[in-house]
């Protein structure tokens, strides 16, 4: 790895502040789990925990991607729409055998990459605000998807898709293994590679990054492509989990993925964050959702709590870092 003649960016999970942040979230998660265990004895059973994590896996995949985009001062509102579009695309093959699965994955990843490329191009090259660019993409994908399905999608899927999403290898859910693989691979890219350092540089100061020989546009576009590809893969796994295609697969994941990343300490101002902390944010979010049900509260309470924690978490990290 070629040394860069720039100082190491501080936010690589090594400074005291970010270590403290990570433990803070872990303590919060631990408290939540104790409360959940007290509320219901079934919560801490391995079967239930694995279940909770299985539900969380597709969201985790989206969060891995969302982290990249937020790190370069962006955000991606089109992830949920892309997940549903990928789900619809998977049925377009009308495949009933597992041989089609690699094709489905290749097509899904290609479509996602193209979507990410357009998002990134609009943001980096045309200087469109990430909010508007990805919002427009969200609506466009939604329109294309509905136009294709005519509002009523079919659900012909290879049987193997279900295995991918809820199957197990030695008792470990396949989608958790995939999430771990994705997180570690992209974690290495982000926290241990030259590209990762460039991402942090562009996120904390694009001008300085440019003066140091980094092409900010290319880095930003790449982050949007990574985000969309992660969302596309997440969409396939969520589809397998749900089992039936609907035009709204993944609805709400755009907000949830941003909530999880922010809770995990990824700064919306860019340049600061850690993939694994963001995934911890996913765990907290899922446990909270589970807890609302365990405590017997109405399910709408999840929306209120989610709203409170996203504002609270953003305020918490802002004061912490100020």
């Amino acid at each position: 790895m070629a040394p860069l003649d720039t100082p190491m960016p501080r936010s690589q999970g090594m400074s005291m502040a970010s270590v403290f942040e990570r433990y803070g979230l872990m303590i919060f998660l631990a408290v939540l789990m104790i409360v959940a265990a007290l509320a219901s004895p079934t919560f801490l059973r391995p079967a239930n925990l694995v279940n909770v994590l299985t539900i969380a896996a597709p969201l985790g995949m989206v969060v891995v991607g969302q982290t990249f985009v937020i790190l370069v001062r962006g955000l991606d509102l089109s992830v949920a729409s892309l997940m549903a579009t990928v789900a619809v695309l998977a049925t377009a093959f009308k495949a009933t055998t597992n041989e089609a699965i690699p094709m489905i994955f290749i097509a899904a990843i290609a479509l996602s990459a193209a979507v990410g490329l357009v998002n990134g191009w609009l943001v980096a090259k045309r200087n469109v605000s990430p909010f508007l660019a990805t919002l427009a993409m969200m609506i466009i994908l939604q329109g294309i998807r509905f136009a294709y399905t005519g509002g009523a999608p079919i659900s012909t899927l290879p049987p193997g898709m279900g295995f991918l999403a809820s199957g197990r290898i030695f008792g470990v859910p396949v989608n958790l293994i995939t999430l771990a693989f994705l997180a570690i691979a992209f974690g290495i890219v982000l926290h241990r590679s030259r590209l990762g350092r460039e991402i942090f540089m562009v996120g904390s100061n694009p001008k300085a990054a440019f003066l140091n020989g980094v092409a900010p546009d290319r880095v930003v576009i790449l982050c949007y492509v990574i985000c969309s590809v992660c969302a596309g893969i997440g969409g396939l796994f969520l589809l397998g989990y749900v089992g039936t295609v609907s035009n709204w697969v993944g609805q709400g994941y755009e907000l949830d993925s941003i909530v999880a990343a922010v809770m995990g300490g990824v700064a919306l101002t860019g340049g600061r964050g850690n993939i694994f902390a963001a995934l911890l944010g996913v765990a907290v979010l899922v446990v909270i959702n589970n807890l609302v049900l365990l405590l017997g509260f109405p399910i709408e309470m999840q929306l209120i709590i989610k709203g409170v924690i996203i504002i609270g978490a953003a305020a918490f990290y802002r004061t912490r870092l100020a």
Partner: peptide, 16 residues
Amino acid sequence: VHPLIVTLGMSSIIFG
């Protein structure tokens, strides 16, 4: 906090 986050959060709270 960024208005995007505040109003998204509030939106979730109001809707819930």
